[in-house]
Design a protein around this nucleic acid. Structure first.
Lengths: 121, 121
DNA sequence: CAGGATCCTTTACGATACTG
DNA sequence: CAGTATCGTAAAGGATCCTG
């Protein structure tokens, strides 16, 4: 590392933007937060389970999002040797590092959304 | 409130999804995290400042996102009485409640992205 | 400077069907 | 069950020009 002594406000801001960008790239799309939030609680889940739990998602998007997340090593995909094929998805320990983010988002939604409702139009 | 004694796993999960949904609706779009992250640090900022700081955004998107956020009372928009008109955007105290989320996201990006880089392809 | 209007291209998303 | 293929819509995003 270099001097790192003092960062200008602009530099700090720039780094933050880059960091936010990195995270949002991994979590891009409309459903990753929901899927991870569900997997964090549900443990091993089959495709159909996720389809049911993640309200509103379709199979195409779910499939695509899961592939993205597998590529980024956030989840594992395990094919079971059952009669009609079964696949289990599970969050990795790396994916679990996203838990604080998901928790904050879930908490905010629970706490602050209704506050706006009252003061709003 | 009702009994609230015990929530089944499914109910808890369902509520979480709803909470995440609420938050993500307020933060919908590709740029809100970046803009809020920037405003949290930058204080009062003009349109042009944001356009420069939020790497990659165009004026059309910035304008649209700021309008959304003003509607949701996350930021205030103040027109100053200057020669060529000047507008300042500033995050509200309500918007500031999103700070923990943004912080977590920025931290994650800074800390965990490089970890993947090393182990990845 | 701050943004709206217009036009155009690309990507994201969703619904429906179909397959091993 | 776990997806893929196909199609159509909507939103994202860029470029350029325009106005108070």
């Amino acid at each position: 590392m270099k001097k790192q002594a003092k960062l200008t406000n602009t530099e700090f801001c720039r780094n933050r933007i880059i960091a936010i960008n990195d995270t949002m790239q991994v979590l891009s799309g409309k459903w990753k937060f929901h899927i991870i939030g569900t997997l964090l609680i549900g443990g091993k889940m089959r495709f159909m389970d996720l389809l049911r739990e993640v309200e509103g998602i379709g199979s195409k998007m779910l499939s695509k999002e899961l592939q993205d997340m597998e590529m980024n090593q956030l989840v594992t995909r395990t094919v079971l040797n059952t009669k009609p094929i079964t696949v289990e998805y599970e969050i990795t320990s790396y994916g679990r590092t996203l838990e604080p983010i998901i928790d904050e988002i879930a908490q905010w939604g629970a706490a602050y959304r209704e506050a706006l409702h009252k003061s709003d139009d």
